[in-house]
Amino acid sequence: MARLHVIKAGMLTTVQDRGRWGLQSRGVPVAGPMDPCSHRLANALVGNDAGAATLEVTLVGPELEFDDERAVAVAGAEFELAVDGRPAPVGVSFVVAAGSRLRVGHRSRGARAYLAISGGVTVPMVFGSRATHLVSVMGGIEGRALKPGDELPLGVPMRPRRSSRIPLPSPIVLPDGHATIRVLPGPQQEYFSSGALDALQSARYKIATSSDRMGFRLEGPRLTHARGADIISDATPLGVLQVPASGQPILLMADRQTTGGYPTIATAISADIGLAGQLGPGETISFVVCSHQEAMAALIAQERALMAVEASTGS
């Protein structure tokens, strides 16, 4: 079976697919890509199914050697890319020859890129998903980030390789150190003082360095509780803003636990999750409340853009 040899691992490179859904009632976290939109775009560019596993590359990328010829695409953050030392384009698919080395260097904009390889990364499924969840040591390669010497199995490309020469418009406008994330109030708005939702929108929040794939710890305007910061544990959806006693919110991301014991003031809309995933530590977020209609319109627009790419590459 054809393999991908990991020469250098990069800062935090993990195998991700759409996530491990259906077992949150057993405490199994979903995991999956921090920027689901770019993950899907990368798969589409190489003709993979949307369910194929890609590599999520964070801030500094890996160096990989190919056993056989593959179509490859990197979507999401802008990274330096080189095949055997020659620059390669981001956001389009290109062919990497057998024995060649692909190097993903430093990012220039955005925080996470998705490296899709035709045929997909075919590490064993765990509960129906290949997504890596670092904390529960599940999925991917032994539940951890890649390290030098790893060998990743690749699937059989399902469709003839087709290089897209023209960069297609990305459904996400990459943030340059700052992003505005739209939120819907709730589900536990009544646990907060009346001014808390205004406070959330009043100034920028900085993403603390202790942030990770589980969540972004945010530093900014303090959100005050109306009746204490401890609740009886409740479910924790993707993109929810959980507020512990400090009044400093935590934006729950891909690797979040399935339940949590802090009140939640608002939830990022699905269409903006990918944008949030493109932010790194030290960068900033503004939150703005929007309507459910606006959330759905944004999601439908994003879906149309992704479907257009999938149609053009035959995936």
């Binding site: 819907l184 990022a268 759905m296």
Partner: peptide, 29 residues
């Protein structure tokens, strides 16, 4: 109770109580 645009949370009384939990489990089932 909507939780964003892709989740709904049905809340019962906020207490640790087998009767309340039985309603939640039955609804989930």
């Amino acid at each position: 109770m909507p939780a964003g645009d892709s989740a709904l949370i049905v809340e019962f009384e906020e207490r640790i109580d087998p009767a309340v939990n039985a309603r939640a489990v039955a609804l989930a089932d």
